[in-house]
Simulated assay, not measured.
Amino acid sequence: MQRQIYLNGSYVPEAQALLPIFDRGFLFADGIYEVCAVIDRRLVDVDLHMKRLVRSVGEIGIALPVASAEVVEIMKELVRRNRLVEGVVYMQVTRGSAERDFHYADDLKPNFVAFTQDRKIVTPKLSTGISVDLQPDIRWQRRDIKSVMLLAQVLAKHEAGKKGFNDVWMVEDGFITEGASSSAFIVTKDGRIVSRANSQAILPGCTRLAVLRLAEETGLLLDERPFTVEQAQDASEAFLTSASSTVTPVVRIGECVIGDGKPGPLTRRLQAIYLDQAMKGEPLFALDDAVSLGASA
């Protein structure tokens, strides 16, 4: 069965899902994307992702081509059609297609594409932890907008991989901003969870916000403030969050081992709370005939 793609109002097999070469997302990275996790047939944090999608397109003046409620239904339908048990739904909205020109007409019709990706979200890394490289943050100044302009992150992740790291955290003026595709957290030696406050310097992470809310409801101590590389490497625990990695322990930052080199108790507690919350929704289809893309459910 070919994967079904949503493209500008229709569900089509992926071989037929084609965009014009004059799409401004292709020519100028003039577009927005959003990613929502699927765990055991359930969409996770969908309301948070929809709010961020609406905000991002608004920040660059693109009209969302369908209503927010319809976008949610499109995601659900893609999960059902593709029998996605675990993975992500990717959505992208570009300004539209026109002859290549920096200037654009205000009445361009946006292009909207969405597809599923079969991917393990709950992986052994959640139990063992990962290492993150440190690299200069060379991205543009509006990192709060979830732009498809990701070249800096692509290069940073590739370089980190060549050096043997699992991921990378970005550094600006001695402070960690965020991961290349995640939010960065540390836990101080007195048990406080520290995460940089939202601003134009970082993307407002949906999983980050969900974790902060759950931590507050649980009575954990929170500080929203910048932290330096040295503070991160001296922390008792560290972790990152994103839709595709939930709450992932970080056990090495650069060449410094964090704590005892194993996921810390507070990180593991947040993992459990978050995954428990993610599993409370109703599955989008029954498992009797469910087959994940390329693997049995």
Rank of each mutant, 00 (worst) to 15 (best):
R3N: 12
G9M: 00
G9H: 03
V12C: 11
P13R: 04
A17W: 03
L19S: 09
P20N: 12
P20I: 14
D23G: 02
R24A: 09
L27P: 02
L27N: 15
D30S: 13
D30C: 10
G31C: 06
I32L: 08
Y33S: 06
V35Y: 05
C36T: 14
I39M: 08
R42L: 07
L43H: 03
L43T: 01
V44K: 01
L48N: 11
K51P: 07
R55W: 13
R55T: 08
S56R: 00
S56V: 02
V57Y: 13
G58C: 04
I60K: 06
G61P: 00
I62W: 05
P65F: 08
S68A: 09
S68N: 05
A69E: 11
A69V: 14
V72P: 07
I74R: 09
V79Y: 00
N82E: 01
V88M: 06
V88Y: 00
Y90D: 11
R95E: 05
G96Q: 03
A98T: 12
D101R: 13
H103E: 08
Y104C: 14
Y104W: 10
A105I: 01
A105Q: 07
L108E: 05
P110T: 08
N111V: 08
A114Q: 04
A114N: 04
Q117R: 13
D118Q: 14
R119P: 02
K120P: 10
I121L: 15
L126C: 05
L126N: 02
T128Q: 12
G129E: 08
V132T: 08
V132D: 06
L134T: 11
Q135D: 12
I138E: 15
R139Y: 03
R139M: 06
R142F: 02
D144C: 02
I145Q: 02
L151K: 10
E159T: 15
G161F: 05
K163A: 14
G164V: 15
G164L: 11
F165M: 11
W169H: 03
M170D: 04
V171E: 14
E172D: 12
D173F: 04
S182V: 06
S183M: 00
A184Y: 11
F185V: 04
V187E: 10
K189E: 14
D190E: 15
V194E: 07
A201V: 00
P204N: 09
R208W: 01
V211E: 01
T218I: 03
L220F: 08
L220M: 12
E224Y: 01
E224D: 06
E224A: 08
V229Y: 02
E230N: 06
E230P: 00
Q231E: 15
A232P: 02
A235D: 03
T241V: 00
S245C: 03
T246V: 13
T246R: 05
V247D: 01
G254H: 05
V257Q: 15
G259A: 07
K262A: 15
P265C: 07
L266F: 05
R268D: 09
R269A: 06
A272C: 06
A272T: 13
L275I: 13
A278N: 04
G281V: 13
L284R: 07
L284E: 12
D289N: 10
A290L: 13
S296D: 07
